[in-house]
Amino acid sequence: MGRYLLTALRVSLLTIVLVGVLYPLLITGLGQLCFPFQANGSLLTTGGTLRGSALIGQPFSAPGYFHPRPSAAGAGYDPLSSGGSNLGPTSQVLHDRVAADVAQARTDNPGLDTVPADMVTTSASGLDPDISPANAYAQAARVAQARGVPAMDITALVTRCVTGRQWGFLGEPRVNVVHLNQALDAAYGATGR
């Protein structure tokens, strides 16, 4: 057995160097060389200030902004506590939370036709940057009113911000809330908060 343990130790140390150190360093080098923006977190910077990542959702609650999905990550969109609610389908807590969010959505968006599922459910990561197009269109009237802009213009902005299926068929159509709100601010000024 001693002979096996010694070989095991030698193989361990050699492979740690190879796949535990050299391999990640190689990938880091190549990644930084070929795709530096992505490898560093798709960071959004305006005027030298780091504003977040294009891939990570942010909390918005003012009526003049589009709201992201509810988040179970920490106090909401905390990337240090990524994760879902893990509430089961028959959870009273889930039922009560969704009931409250449905009521809130109806108060915030008078004349709301239906409540899209993703508007009142938490995502898996708690950092989902996207909402469904249905969710975005449902909020357009509220945003328009808060900003004093014709609803048609906001709806058109949403339509421009919809990301289609990748390569035309992969995944789901979606709207990145951070992008959408950035576009709002760019078009109408950061006055909606």
Partner: peptide, 12 residues
């Protein structure tokens, strides 16, 4: 315009 279904704990 939306995936529908049980979206609790899923990404859009």
């Amino acid at each position: 315009l939306q995936p529908g279904g049980n979206m609790e704990g899923k990404e859009v």
